[in-house]
């Protein structure tokens, strides 16, 4: 039972990170492999403000989010939009964006190494036990989970209830038709990409309250986020959340029952199963 809850708590934050990636891939069509670095940067932000000024990470996110939004927006406009424009086919854009975002990812790691060094960093915030359903959990995990739920909820409402959200969903379904009905596709794609970056960085700030990060930890999170997005289905918010919670539980199960060193192997096992049996995602329709 406590495994299940720990897993769900972890999955909540995963959901947030994967939502960020899903926005970027589903709308801007960029598989952003530098996603994890932004997450770590968000974590660094939280760490910095907490250790230097005792600012709560839950307040820091209001700083981290706009900063990550701005950085992502600039990266999209300057570096990624030209790739979209020059691509002759979806496949070429895919290859180009994979290479470019790999480049960004390494540059990100390199810069963070230069700025903060290669040490692990963690800090103690809300590290108090709290009792839920008869078991005790760290308060920081519970609080992060709740914050993730609130943010996912807001994002969901925004996508489904507002005009901008509608445009974003329209682009995800069909960029060409979206253009025809008067949606400014490049602008909305940039916004979606930037928003995805902001959500991911906030996820990083939240996760740093209970996980130890270091400058090169990003790639593992990128991988997990990618696996979640593929499991949940590209552009599918509901699928992403379910897949994230599922991955959180499976990882926690493997970590506590077999070996903590095998979490990625567990994620991979899931990934293989999905690839073999449901390549269109858990809730995806069979492609026609």
């Amino acid at each position: 039972m406590d495994i299940l809850i720990t897993g769900l708590l972890l999955g909540g934050t995963y959901a947030l990170i994967a939502m960020g990636l899903n926005l970027q891939y589903g709308v801007a069509r960029i598989m952003n492999l530098a996603n994890g670095e932004l997450l770590v940067a968000g974590g660094f932000g939280a760490f910095f403000f907490y250790t230097s000024g005792q600012v709560s990470p839950f307040l820091t996110i209001f700083l981290v989010a706009p900063a990550a939004f701005g950085v992502s927006w600039v990266i999209y406009r300057i570096m990624l939009r030209p790739l979209v424009n020059r691509a002759k086919s979806r496949g070429q854009l895919e290859t180009d964006s994979i290479l470019a975002t790999f480049g960004l990812s390494f540059v990100g790691v390199g810069l963070m190494l230069a700025a903060f060094g290669g040490d692990y960093f963690n800090y103690s915030y809300l590290a108090r036990p709290i009792t839920l359903a008869g078991d005790t959990f760290a308060l920081n995990r519970v609080a992060s989970f709740l914050a993730a739920v609130v943010i996912c909820g807001l994002l969901y409402l925004w996508l489904n209830r507002t005009r901008a959200g509608l445009s974003i969903r329209a682009i995800a379904v069909s960029p060409d038709s979206a253009r025809l009905v008067g949606i400014d596709v490049p602008r909305m794609a940039a916004i979606a990409f930037a928003l995805g970056g902001a959500v991911t960085a906030v996820g990083g700030a939240l996760i740093s309250t209970y996980l130890t990060l270091d400058a090169s930890a990003g790639v593992i999170f990128t991988l997990k986020a990618l696996i979640i997005v593929i499991m949940g289905g590209v552009g599918d918010v509901r699928g992403t959340i379910v897949a994230a919670l599922f991955l959180g539980v499976v990882e926690t199960l493997v970590a506590s029952l077999i070996d903590p060193g095998l979490t990625l192997a567990a994620a991979y096992a899931l990934f293989i199963l999905v690839l073999l049996f449901r390549p269109q995602g858990l809730f995806g329709k069979t492609p026609t």
Binding site: L99, V107, G110, A114
Partner: peptide, 20 residues
């Protein structure tokens, strides 16, 4: 020795933008 990752990153960017 600490800048090898940065070198990797810049090389990727160089390939994509200058030497496709």
């Amino acid at each position: 020795p600490n800048q090898t990752t940065l070198l990797l990153g810049l090389s990727f960017l160089l390939i994509v933008y200058a030497l496709p």
